[in-house]
Design a protein around this nucleic acid. Sequence first.
DNA 1: CCCACAATACCACTTTAGTGTGATTTTTCT
DNA 2: AGAAAAATCACACTAAAGTGGTATTGTGGG
Lengths: 208, 208
Amino acid sequence: MISIAIIEDDEDIRESLKILIQTTEDFTCAGTFADAETGLEFLTANPADIVLMDIHLPGMDGIECVRQLKSVHPEMQFIMCTIFQDDNSVFNALKAGATGYLLKNDDPGKIIDAIHELHAGGSPITPQIARRVMESFKRPAVNDAIHLLTKRETEMLGLLAKGFRYKEIADKLCISTETVRKHINNIYQKLHVQSRIEAVNKIFGDRS
Amino acid sequence: MISIAIIEDDEDIRESLKILIQTTEDFTCAGTFADAETGLEFLTANPADIVLMDIHLPGMDGIECVRQLKSVHPEMQFIMCTIFQDDNSVFNALKAGATGYLLKNDDPGKIIDAIHELHAGGSPITPQIARRVMESFKRPAVNDAIHLLTKRETEMLGLLAKGFRYKEIADKLCISTETVRKHINNIYQKLHVQSRIEAVNKIFGDRS
DNA sequence: CCCACAATACCACTTTAGTGTGATTTTTCT
DNA sequence: AGAAAAATCACACTAAAGTGGTATTGTGGG
C-alpha cells in the first residue's frame, strides 16, 4: 500500500486527486492540504510515501516545501504538479529534491502511471526536462585547461584533489617527494595558480 | 535534413539502421562504421548531427568514442544503442556526453521518435535512467555534517573552498587572522579532518 | 640522429597552514 | 538573570606547501 499526500490549493483539483487515489488499488491517501505550511507541519510528523505537490501555492511555494520535507525525510518522494510545463520551476523543484512531475491536465491514467513509475524507482519527467537535468549534471566535463597537463601531472592533480600530502603521493607512486613537488609546481605554473585548492577548482570546477 | 552516422559492429543491425534512416524523411545517413576507430577518424573530419553509437564494440568502446568525439565536436549528439538496458554502461555513456539511448530491439518507430526527440532538444532515456541521472545530479545537497558548523564557520568554509588565504579571509571579514585560524581549527575538529581540501571535500563532496 | 619534453631527483629557502592553549566579549537560549 | 554557545584575539610552535634553480635519463617525433 502506497500512502500518498496531496498539497494543492485548488479545492476541485485536490478533491479529484484524492478520489483518484482512493479509488486506485494499492494507493491510500495520507492527507490533503491546501497550503505548504499545513502540509509541512503534518507530513513532518506523519511522513507519507509520496507527495503530490503543487508548485504555486499561497505563502510558501511547493519547491521550498519539498526542500524542507526532504531534509527531514529524505526517503519521501515528490511529484510536482503544474498547470503548464514551466521548465524552470520544474528544474528548480528537481534540484530541491523532487523526483518527478506531471501536468494537472494529464489524464488520470497518466497520473497513476507516474506514481507507479516513481514508486518503482523511476523518475516521471519529460525528455525535455531530462535533457536539462543531464546538461547540468554533465558538468563542464573538466576544464579545457587539463589538456595542458601531462598524464603524470593529471594523475598528481587527482591525488591532490583527494587531499593527499606530498609524502603520501610520493609513496603511492613510488617516487620521491621532491619529484611530486616538482610536478605540482609545474601544474601550478601551467594553470597560473598558487595553491592546491585553486588548481583543483580550476580543473574540476568550483562548488558552493 | 538531419545527418546521422552509425557506429555498430553487427552488420545486420548496421544495415537495418541505415535503411531505416535512408527511408525516413528529413534523415540522411552520414556514414556507417563497424568500429569506433574508423568512425572516430571519419567523424572528426566530417561531423554529423547525430550519431547512433553501439556501446560494445571491438577495440575502443562506444563510450570512449563519444568522449573523444564530444571533445572535438561538442555540438554533435549521441544516442547509445545497447542490446539490453545495462544501467551502468548507459549511465557512463551519459556522463561521457551522450544525450539519449535506445535498445536495439526497439521497433523502428521508436528509434525514429528517439532521434526526433533528441533533435528537438529532448533526451530519449527511460525513467529509470532519468532517476539515476537525477540522483547523481542532485548531489548529496551538501553533507549533513554541515549542520555541525555555526554560521560563521560555514562562511569560513565557503571562503576556504574558494582558495582564499587566512589573511584574505580576515581582511574580507574585518577580523584578525588569528580568529580565522581559530574558526578553521574548530571546523577541522568538528569534521575530523586536518586540511582545507579534506574539509571542503567532506562538505561539498569529492570530485574527480 | 637530435631535440624537445616528460619524468625523475636534490637542495635551499620562504610562506602558509595547522596545532595547542588560553582568554575576553557577544549572542542566544532558557 | 544566568548558563551555554559563538565569535573574537593572541602567542608559540610544528608541519606542510610553495618557489626557484639545477641536473639526469628516457622517449617519441621530425
